[in-house]
Amino acid sequence: MTKVVDARGLSCPQPVILARQAMEEGEFPIEVLVDTVTSRENVRRAATKAGLQVQVEAVGDEFKLTLTQ
C-alpha cells in the first residue's frame, strides 16, 4: 500500500521533516503532497540526497512526489 504524506499548507522545512519520517519507516513507495514550488523542490532534493528516485507530478496547482527506492 502506498504511504501518503499530506504536507499541503505546511511551510518548509516541515514537508521535508514529514517526508523524512516516512522514509525512515522504510516502506516504499511514498507519495508526498505539497502545494508550493519551494516545498516541491526541497522534498525532491532531500529525497534525491537520500538516494531515492523521485517522480514529480502536477495535480492542478499542487504537486505529488512519488518516492521509490
Binding site: C12, P13, V16, T38, N42, R45
Partner: peptide
C-alpha cells in the same frame, strides 16, 4: 538533512538565474 526554510529555496529559485557555480561545489 535539507532543513532549509522556504525562503532559502525561494532565493535560489529567483536569484539562481544570475549565479553560476563551479560544478565541484556541493548542492
Amino acid at each position: 538533512l535539507w532543513l532549509f526554510p522556504g525562503g532559502t529555496a525561494a532565493n535560489e529559485m529567483y536569484f539562481g538565474q544570475w549565479v553560476t557555480f563551479d560544478p565541484s561545489i556541493p548542492e
